[in-house]
Design a protein around this nucleic acid. Structure first.
Lengths: 335, 335
DNA sequence: CCTGGCACTCGAACTGGTCGAGTGCCAATC
DNA sequence: GATTGGCACTCGACCAGTTCGAGTGCCAGG
């Protein structure tokens, strides 16, 4: 009754399959791995593993490959492994001289895709509530205007609004002056109160509430959620075992930010370390042949970094890289 | 000596091959296309076309497929075809309610990728020289600051700079006030003169020249050139005939903005209508199995839209779509 | 509980053979 | 001289039959 050996066998199968991309048989295992038992014993273990649904054979007389559940078990029994020193240094040098938050995210996603040789995904950090520093209103035409909000924490948001009437230059200038006076230095509930008082004042232009709304959204931490990714070519690179008709939907899902965002949100909830979704666990048709490994970073661990690749991927290595990049990002973003 | 018929044969081969993805033979041509001659005649023409290097046969006893040169000839003899009405309407409805320049570009690239079923590429429009409207200096830490420049034409540029010394709050505030006073409403040579006078003034902080530089760059029309793309999944979609190992380098080239930018720049020079690069004409290893169709748009036709796909693509249709989107973009950007 | 042995399965790889689309060439025709 | 019908030829695609061997399940003995 060697439960541990069965785990070892599973581990060996996963590692073997990941390395060779070919079903692994009982004999091959006894030769390449030091398990200390004969192939017959392994076969018995395999029978049990198969009964448990952890491995499967593609053809009656072929070796075994792990199922999604098999990978899952493998990952769950995994001791946290550490990142090669070279990679660790790469993170430091690669990210250290980023100039702004955009740049940080951009560099991170490229770095992670190189470290993991998978598609890397970084969700833009959600930003904290911040005070208003300066508001610019810029006319775009007779009935449209641009609202630019510079926050105290050096974020810049912009949004075009439709005025809904041909506002006079004078009214426009006055609104710009007033809203700066009213909102400057405020945040949160006080900002909201001040702005709604201003926009509801008698004689106020009808579009003032639009301006107020825009400013409030910006102060609350930015407008849209966004995910950037890099390394899509890793999906197609030789040896992934994914062919064109399986890659296309994945690329679609990536460009379709919505899908990815929902998935990341789902993953954000659980655990504080690295979180893994394998194959069908992504709950998304297009991603059913891929796994995604994600880790939270930033304040309140509210944003996510991740790597996405074929279910047959190097889990320990990828997990280590994702973890490391997430840690580094946390340091950079929280400062 | 019917030179025209040979062109017709070439056209028939190109269209047939694009449609079926299979080598087309002489007999098939006489049956599906009304060329008015027998298969033997076609064979003779084919022999000549092959001698001229316009077509080739993959196997001794198979039909012919066009070479890069064949596509080139086909494209050069092409009369401008027009876009289906449905597509034309799509462009209007799809792009009309974009909120800012980012949004316009984003929507365009998606639209174009859907119209052509290829990878769409849009280079960010280069913007005109513009007057400075407002400059914000935001402290990021002891020695770093963010410069935000809002231009008169509603553009917002931002750039982080290293101060190089621990500037006092007071000096910082003063610089912010001064630079606004000095630069407000100016552009071009006058802006440059005013800023250099300011930054070179006796007693001025050493980082003032950095601020001046940033403001100047922003006023001159933005910082970096950028290309956005969409529809990468079209490369992998069934029926493109591109398999994984050929797709990977293409994806790399796309993410590697540099390559794409250089190619687009090259294409910008020639002709005022749609410009086409076929296979090896891209002068880029990774793109040797793909063609790119681009058209200039915007002021001075200085930016480019394009579509990239396998050399075996629907040239007339794609050219029409690219042309139409470029026209529409011109209208939107120039206003 | 482990092991060696054995019969069995079934895909991969090779072989040989047929089929047919497509070709090149040539003599006959317009 | 261009076009055409005819004909022999080539060669990949397809199919069926065969062999080969990795891998399996099961069982009896340690």
């Amino acid at each position: 009754m060697s439960e541990e050996r069965r785990q070892a066998v599973l581990r060996a199968i996963v590692e073997g399959y990941v390395a060779t991309h070919e079903p692994v048989g009982s004999k091959a295992l006894t030769e390449t791995r030091a398990l200390g038992v004969s192939s017959a014993t392994i076969r018995n273990d395999m029978a049990i593993l198969e009964e448990q649904g952890l491995i499967a054979q593609p053809h009656t007389s072929a070796g075994r490959i792990p199922t999604d559940a098999g990978y899952r078990s493998f990952v769950d029994h995994l001791a946290a492994s550490s990142l090669p020193e070279a990679h660790r240094r790469a993170i430091g040098t690669f990210l250290s001289d980023a100039v702004d938050i955009n740049d940080v995210v951009e560099r991170s996603v490229r770095l992670l895709s190189q470290l993991t040789r998978q598609v890397a995904v970084v969700q833009f950090p959600s930003l904290r509530e911040s005070a208003v520093r300066r508001i610019e209103l810029v006319r775009l035409g007779a009935e449209r205007a641009l609202v630019v909000v510079v926050s105290a924490d050096a974020r810049v948001d912009q949004q075009t609004i439709a005025l809904g009437e041909a506002a006079s230059d004078e009214a426009f200038e006055r609104a710009a002056r007033e809203v700066n006076e009213v909102a400057h230095g405020l945040s949160g509930a006080r900002l909201e109160a001040a702005l709604s008082a201003w926009s509801a004042a008698p004689g106020q232009a009808p579009w003032a509430s639009l301006v107020a709304q825009t400013v409030l959204t910006a102060a609350r931490g930015g407008t849209v959620e966004r995910v950037v990714f890099a390394g899509t070519s890793n999906l197609a690179r030789a040896g992934t075992g994914l062919d064109a008709d399986i890659i296309a939907p994945v690329l679609d899902a990536l460009e379709e930010q919505v899908v990815l965002l929902r998935l990341l949100h789902e993953m954000a909830g659980q655990g504080d370390d690295v979180s893994v979704r394998i194959g069908a666990e992504t709950h998304h048709e297009a991603l059913s042949s891929t796994s995604i490994i994600a880790a939270a970073y930033g304040r309140d661990a509210s944003s996510l970094v991740g790597a996405l690749g074929p279910t047959r991927m190097d889990y320990p290595g990828t997990m280590a890289a994702v973890r490391a990049v997430a840690r580094y990002l946390s340091r950079v973003v929280e400062l």
